[in-house]
Amino acid sequence: LQAFIKTLTGKTFTVEMEPSDTIENLKAKIQDKEGIPPDQQRLIFAGKQLEDGRTLSDYNIQKESTLHLVL
């Protein structure tokens, strides 16, 4: 599935991932794409901060969901 990552500066980019991917995997993909170390990334979806060990499906993240990236 493709999801949108929106930063506080208003920049939006897309990442490809599977519902079974962990938040940790997602942070690694963001690092590959944007060069931001995972330990500096905080991802917010539906008002909740996402925990590394959980999966996208745990948070009911669907295709074309928008996640907010806070540094």
Score class of each variant (00 low, 15 high):
Gly35Trp: 02
Thr22Leu: 09
Gln2Thr: 15
Asp58Gln: 05
Phe45Cys: 04
Asp39Ile: 08
Leu8Met: 14
Gly47Ala: 03
Lys11Val: 08
Asn25Phe: 12
Ser20Tyr: 12
Pro19Glu: 10
Ala3Trp: 09
Glu34Asp: 04
Leu1Asn: 06
Ser57Arg: 11
Val70Leu: 14
Ile23Thr: 04
Asp58Arg: 01
Gly53Asn: 12
Ala3His: 05
Ala46Thr: 04
Thr22Ala: 03
Gln40Met: 11
Gln2Ala: 08
Gln62Ile: 12
Lys11Phe: 12
Asp21Leu: 05
Ala28Glu: 09
Gly53Tyr: 11
Lys6Val: 15
Leu69Cys: 01
Met17Phe: 15
Gln62Arg: 10
Tyr59Val: 04
Gly35Lys: 06
Gln31Val: 04
Val70Gly: 05
Gln40Ser: 09
Leu67Lys: 01
Gly10Ser: 03
Glu16Gln: 10
Leu26Arg: 00
Leu69Gln: 01
Leu69Gly: 01
Ser57Phe: 09
Leu69Phe: 06
Asp39Ala: 12
Thr12Met: 11
Asp21Cys: 04
Gly53Arg: 09
Thr22Cys: 03
Tyr59Ser: 03
Ile5Ser: 01
Ile30Glu: 00
Lys48Phe: 09
Glu16Lys: 07
Thr12Arg: 07
Ile23Gln: 01
Ile61Thr: 06
Leu67Met: 10
Asp39Val: 09
Asp32Ser: 11
Gln31His: 14
Ile61Cys: 03
Thr14Ser: 10
Ile61Val: 11
Pro38Tyr: 12
Thr14Asp: 04
Ile44Ala: 04
Gln40Leu: 10
Thr55His: 06
Ile23His: 01
Glu34Lys: 08
Ala3Pro: 08
Val15Ser: 00
Ile5Pro: 01
Glu51Lys: 08
Leu8Tyr: 12
Thr66Arg: 07
Asp58Thr: 04
Arg42Pro: 00
Ala3Phe: 15
Gly53Leu: 08
Pro19Asp: 09
Asp39Tyr: 12
Leu1Ile: 15
Pro19Gly: 08
Arg54Ser: 07
Thr66Gly: 05
Leu71Cys: 07
Val15Met: 06
Gln41Glu: 00
Ile30Pro: 00
Ile5Cys: 05
Leu43His: 00
Tyr59Cys: 03
Asp32Ile: 14
Asp32Arg: 11
Lys6Tyr: 07
Ser20Glu: 11
Gln41Pro: 01
Ile44Val: 09
Thr9Cys: 14
Ala46Gln: 15
Pro19Ser: 11
Ser65Asn: 10
Lys33Met: 14
Asp21Thr: 05
Gly47His: 04
Thr9Trp: 15
Leu69Tyr: 01
Arg54Asp: 07
Glu18Asn: 13
Glu18Asp: 13
Glu18Lys: 13
Leu1Asp: 04
Phe13His: 02
Gln31Phe: 15
Gly47Phe: 04
Ser65Gln: 08
Asp52Trp: 03
Tyr59Arg: 01
Lys63Gln: 14
Lys63Gly: 15
Thr66Ser: 06
Arg54Asn: 10
Lys11Ser: 08
Ser20Thr: 12
Pro19Phe: 12
Gln62Val: 13
Ser57His: 09
Tyr59Met: 04
Thr22Asn: 04
Gly53Pro: 06
Pro38Ala: 15
Gln31Ser: 12
Ala28Phe: 12
Leu67Cys: 01
His68Val: 14
Glu64Lys: 11
Lys63Tyr: 10
Leu43Cys: 01
Thr7His: 06
Ile36Asn: 02
Asp58Glu: 11
Gln40Gly: 05
Thr9Leu: 09
Gly10His: 04
Asp39Trp: 13
Tyr59Lys: 02
Met17Thr: 06
Phe13Ser: 01
Ser20Val: 05
Val70Met: 12
Ile44Met: 10
Thr55Pro: 08
Thr14Phe: 10
Pro19His: 08
Lys48Thr: 13
Ile44Trp: 15
Gly47Ile: 02
Glu64Phe: 13
Arg42Trp: 09
Lys63Pro: 15
Asp58Lys: 02
Leu71Glu: 07
Ala46Glu: 15
Gly10Glu: 03
Glu64Val: 07
Ile36Val: 08
Glu51Ile: 08
Ala28Cys: 07
Val70Asn: 05
Leu56Tyr: 03
Glu18Gln: 13
Gln2Pro: 07
Glu34His: 12
Arg54Glu: 06
Ile44Lys: 05
Gln31Pro: 00
Thr12Lys: 07
Leu1Tyr: 09
Asn60Pro: 04
Lys63Ile: 08
His68Phe: 13
Thr66Glu: 09
Asp52Val: 05
Arg42Val: 15
Pro19Gln: 09
Leu26Trp: 00
Pro38Lys: 15
